[in-house]
Design a protein around this nucleic acid. Structure first.
Lengths: 268, 268
DNA sequence: GAGTGGTCTAGACCACCAC
DNA sequence: TGGTGGTCTAGACCACTCA
């Protein structure tokens, strides 16, 4: 059976990777930057994700449907989606379909927060908004967020409490161009983690993040807010979060009081 | 085509999972603990790995060979190996074969060490062995290493230096039964990371680990060793490492001076 | 019962490597 | 040139979900 006549994916160097059945595609040497069909399909799906073709919580087309759309076999689409699922961009549910990963509805945890109490289960951290203002980005922030110094930026400061005691002091910086109507009221009214709000209100999905962790001594201000002594050791966590396409969209600086909690990490 | 007559994998509940081609396997309801064929294959391969059937650096049988041995299709073996590769138990190399993952020869980094210098590349950390002795395990260590209090245990203390300055102070505890001939001489003579020695000399592979991180203040002893002031903030990293079958085989307590380095973590 | 993802198979061809 | 992993296809059946 010859390959169907349709919109087939073209490789950057006009290569037609090892296709099975048909007698199509004779030679075509492989260029320097070759990527297999399923990766191209994956990139197309990501593009649709990014473009918001399918909204947050609910499903993307079925595998057969996507296979037909892209003119490939279901197996190829499957492998593409496998990778997307492995990267948490998408969630598969047998018998139901494949869904755009969301961190809005699920009241689980704070997406990237790796803090665990020494004893018992975390009953959910309380949030306390301290500040939210629009600023001009200083150089060191602008640089990390792919902005220019002086660009518009939203600055948020908040506390997280566990059993009434402050545990985390967060400073958050966001590009102004992406978070237009973000105000203190908007933030304080919202229930659930910020990342949920970012998805539903601003269409910004946090895909991955990288953190830099140090031990620091509490200064006067943070000591007061976290109710510890000046000079007490705190975990300083600097987090840079990315959306689709490895675009940085959030910078955080957190100070964690690790006297009753610890930062957990699994290494493979 | 009926399935080949051979040593076929049997599921725990006598279930014959969705096989394709043949007209074999009529009903067979699925039991409570069902696992697909490729996972059973994976388990068999892990068993061989654990048994040391194939030694560290070099290859395991080819996919076709394994498929024949287990009486399944190459695709099923492939999927099993895919997972093993994803878990870093095994490394695939196109055109060459699949190899048991090793952390001995590769003089890369320290397997699980997530420490990065603020500037430049790490030129390799210098090691300084401070102590190595056999002890009886106290309760809190025995508990984490699946031992009984008072069991034999090897205790190691060492420093890691960067550019001549101490950065990491590690205390390491190992079950005595697994590390029989481990002595200070053996450790100091060895080149490269401990985990390499553990593999080649004792056949112990570290597969994964979990860390608990806190900010702590330097006490007198660690301050002296790390050349910082008493009370200086340090990163306290407690690491429990596991071999095949989630068996804990090493406990570490590290103190990191994060004034010129940071702990990096990637979140997905 | 229809639809969706999950598993398994068989066979084709490609890219890489070593001899 | 032959072997190994890598990609792609086509088709079968299974398990799960929901109307």
């Amino acid at each position: 059976m010859p390959p169907p006549t349709n919109t087939r994916v073209a490789n950057s160097t006009e290569a037609s990777p090892g296709a099975g059945s048909g007698s199509s595609s004779a030679a075509a040497p492989v260029g320097p930057s070759f990527s297999p069909l399923y990766r191209q399909i994956k990139a197309l799906i990501i593009a649709s994700l990014q473009a918001g073709e399918w909204r947050a919580g609910e499903g993307i087309p079925s595998e057969v449907e996507l296979a037909a759309r892209f003119g490939v076999s279901q197996g190829t689409v499957r492998k593409a989606i496998d990778e997307l699922a492995a990267e948490n961009l998408v969630v598969r549910r047998q018998g139901k379909g494949t869904f755009v990963a969301t961190h809005a509805e699920q009241q689980q945890q704070y997406r990237f927060l790796r803090l665990t109490p020494d004893e018992g289960q975390e009953p959910g951290l309380g949030r306390q908004l301290l500040d939210c203002r629009r600023q001009r980005a200083p150089a060191w922030i602008a640089h990390q967020l792919n902005m220019r110094t002086g660009d518009a930026m939203v600055e948020v400061r908040r506390l997280l409490h566990s059993k009434g005691k402050p545990v985390v002091l967060d400073d958050i910086w966001l590009p102004g161009r992406l978070f237009g109507g973000l105000t203190a009221e908007r933030l304080s009214q919202h229930r659930g983690p910020f990342y949920g709000l970012f998805e539903t209100e601003f269409g910004v999905h946090m895909i991955r993040a990288q953190e830099r962790i140090r031990a620091v001594a509490a200064d006067a201000e943070s000591a007061a807010l976290l109710q510890v002594e000046v000079g007490a050791p705190l975990l300083g966590v600097e987090r840079l979060s990315f959306t689709y396409g490895d675009v940085p969209v959030e910078l955080r600086r957190g100070l964690y009081n690790t006297s009753t909690h610890f930062y957990r990490n699994d290494l493979n």
